[in-house]
Amino acid sequence: MKELIPFIMIGGLVLVYVLSYALNKRTPVPEECLDDIDTAACTSCNNFACGHHGGE
């Protein structure tokens, strides 16, 4: 039984990670944050493939 404890612990940590990732993806963005997206668009980096790049 002592040999299974590390596998149970690692399995539990993986399960917590997967569940928290899935729940985070399902959580909607708060309404007050949607208004600030355009004003907070990043203009300091040169990554033009970024969805938040606030070009002209």
Results as ranks from 00 to 15, higher is better:
37 I>F: 13
37 I>M: 13
3 E>L: 12
39 T>V: 12
46 N>W: 11
13 L>S: 06
15 L>T: 14
9 M>W: 10
31 E>S: 13
23 L>G: 06
44 S>L: 10
52 H>T: 01
10 I>D: 01
53 H>M: 11
45 C>D: 00
16 V>Q: 03
41 A>Y: 03
33 C>Y: 14
21 Y>C: 03
22 A>W: 11
3 E>W: 10
17 Y>M: 13
17 Y>D: 07
49 A>N: 13
23 L>R: 09
24 N>H: 10
23 L>I: 02
26 R>Q: 11
56 E>R: 10
39 T>D: 13
36 D>N: 12
23 L>M: 09
50 C>Q: 00
35 D>P: 01
6 P>L: 00
34 L>R: 15
55 G>S: 07
12 G>A: 01
17 Y>S: 10
56 E>A: 11
28 P>M: 03
23 L>V: 05
56 E>S: 09
5 I>T: 09
19 L>N: 00
32 E>F: 15
9 M>N: 07
46 N>L: 09
8 I>G: 01
48 F>L: 08
35 D>K: 15
25 K>Y: 02
4 L>G: 06
15 L>Q: 09
42 C>D: 05
54 G>Y: 02
6 P>D: 04
55 G>E: 05
3 E>G: 02
28 P>S: 04
42 C>Y: 00
12 G>V: 07
31 E>G: 02
30 P>M: 04
17 Y>I: 11
25 K>C: 04
12 G>T: 00
41 A>L: 10
13 L>A: 12
3 E>D: 11
41 A>R: 14
13 L>V: 12
2 K>A: 11
17 Y>G: 06
46 N>D: 14
24 N>T: 10
24 N>D: 08
